[in-house]
Amino acid sequence: MSIKSPESNWFKPPEGSERLWVGVALVWCMVMFLAMPYWHFKGKQNSTGESYAVTPAEFQKRVNRFVETNKVGEKNGIPVVEPSPGGDAYLMGQMWRWYPILKLKEGQTYRLHISSVDLQHGFSVLPININFQVLPGYDHVLTLTPTSKGIFQVICNEFCGIGHHLMTGQIIVE
């Protein structure tokens, strides 16, 4: 009993409505559990956590090389970079910008490498609302296929200091 010791024969299986509910709840829990492996194989949106160790300096070098080879324009002084479909793209989180602006093609798949060269950041694409964590030291690889056209805003959703709200970027999908 709640505030007194129970009667000594308290060990027994549930009965009646309680038994029904425990059974139904257990089935629902199993459904929810199996949904995740199912989606992992059949679904198109997954978080596999693919990543590689990289130092911030090395990552910055790769980003610069990526910008030099693939730059197609400039916007507000920020390079606009178009990776080749099926190829690698780089996005650097830094206090307080996402660098560079990416130009992608609808329906094409890219290996997008995201990392931070300082604090932790949060990669968040609006208005479609997909979100991934970005950590210094980790080259987080998202195999990404944009399925809609437009200009998408990238914001930071992990606190990164006083200028956190200034940290924006862009992905243009054509």
Binding site: N129, I155, N157, H165
Partner: peptide
């Protein structure tokens, strides 16, 4: 949050950001 509004964020109008962003 279902519109993507971040938690722990001071200004979701992103006033002063080099590339504009915001919510409807």
């Amino acid at each position: 949050g279902s519109y993507g509004v971040p938690r722990r964020h001071w200004d979701v109008n992103f006033t002063g950001a080099p590339l504009s962003a915001g919510f409807d």
